[in-house]
């Protein structure tokens, strides 16, 4: 039953997530809320691993989520099956859609109705991605237990975030560098 549900959830994601791998994050967030398959913290770990390994991020995340859901109840074999299932479900809708479109690519590009439809999808993705970001940031930046004057905030995390964001926007190096810095800082300062 879990496997059917995994397939269905990722099929929906593949059908409605428009604009690449990061556009799937709001859908994964939704899965975390609805199914208790993983927490938002685990999700941000999965995103980190997906960004720093070869392969398209969206596919990596699907494989990872599928693996962790499957292995939860059926061990390694269940994990492998879950990973394959989630990935297949994610690419299935686009596989069919792209092959249909490929026949009349030029017409598709010039069709004004399609252009209009997609006009508002990118802003919609921006809004949803911002919500996912807040959900991922709150457990990192706010102390869940104990709230005095300053204990409310996790200052270490906020400082690291500010430093990394500055670096990312200023130097535009590959993401893996910032993830590595985050890992080292996490170990040294005991996050």
């Amino acid at each position: 039953m879990t496997f059917l549900l995994v397939f269905w959830e990722f099929f929906k994601t593949g059908l409605f997530a428009i604009g690449g791998g990061l556009a799937t994050i709001p859908f994964l967030m939704r899965m975390a809320e609805n199914h208790n398959w993983f927490t938002t913290e685990e999700l941000s770990n999965m995103i980190a691993v997906s960004e720093s390994t070869p392969g398209p991020i969206g596919i990596n995340m699907a494989t990872y989520v599928g693996y962790s859901v499957g292995s939860e109840s059926f061990g390694v074999v269940g994990g492998i099956l879950g990973g394959i299932l989630a990935t297949t479900a994610l690419v299935l809708p686009s596989l069919v859609i792209i092959m249909i479109i490929a026949g009349f690519l030029q017409k598709f590009r010039q069709n004004s109705l399609i252009e209009k439809t997609f006009f508002c999808l990118r802003p919609a993705t921006i809004g949803m991605l911002a919500v996912s970001l807040i959900a991922m940031m709150s457990p990192l930046f706010f102390n869940p237990n104990g709230c005095g004057y300053f204990e409310c905030f996790n200052l270490k995390a906020i400082l690291l975030f500010a430093a990394l964001l500055f670096g990312i926007l200023k130097f535009k190096k590959h993401p893996i560098i910032y993830l590595a810095i985050g890992a080292v800082a996490g170990i040294i300062f005991k996050f």
Binding site: L140, A157, I168, A183
Partner: peptide, 17 residues
């Protein structure tokens, strides 16, 4: 601890995205 630090970096990368 490493993953806690990495999660912070992920948030910063999403801000950039």
């Amino acid at each position: 601890n490493a993953f806690a630090g990495i999660s912070v970096a992920v948030c910063a990368l999403i801000v950039q995205a």
